[in-house]
Amino acid sequence: MQLLRNNAFVADAWATLADDAPLAEGARAIVSFARLQKEWDTLAKHTGLLGVAVPNTLRAEELAPYVSRLALIVLAFPSFTDGRSYSLARQLRLDGYRGELRATGNLLPDQLQFMLQVGIDTFEVSERFPLEMWQKAARQMALTYQRGFTHAADEREVWSQRHQGFAAWEEQPHAG
């Protein structure tokens, strides 16, 4: 597995913790959602950064009480045809979440652009596809009809472009 961010493979500063593994002070740790709920009182006081891995069956409301404290949310794509996490990402961004969203699971380059557009920043990808393929895939469609999604600098919203005087509808600027 490698971590893709901004068209490059980067080192992963995060570590995923097993549910019974201790949380080191100051660490950047990803815990399961079950553990987050169970140990919230302790985890809320964690001195490092906190991330959570959520199943794609989770409702965004269930995550709401914790969101302001989370620097990373890991979204699951158990198969590339299972699109639930696209909506979950979108809901989180619409709700104003500005931390990192990360996709994990069975990811194909051909889906990368959609994932970027719904607001996902980083991608845990297999070594099967070379970096150039991911870079190319991120830029394949420079136009979108839908409004309010996250766009790269050279992507354009058709409807906003057509109707002069309307800037692209920047939804929620976020990190990433």
Binding site: F80, Y86, F114, T144, Y145, Q146, F149, W159
Partner: peptide, 13 residues
């Protein structure tokens, strides 16, 4: 038609 074309959120229903 335009709105649903390659909708980033709704392409893997």
């Amino acid at each position: 038609r335009q709105w649903s074309s390659l909708h980033p959120e709704f392409s893997f229903l």
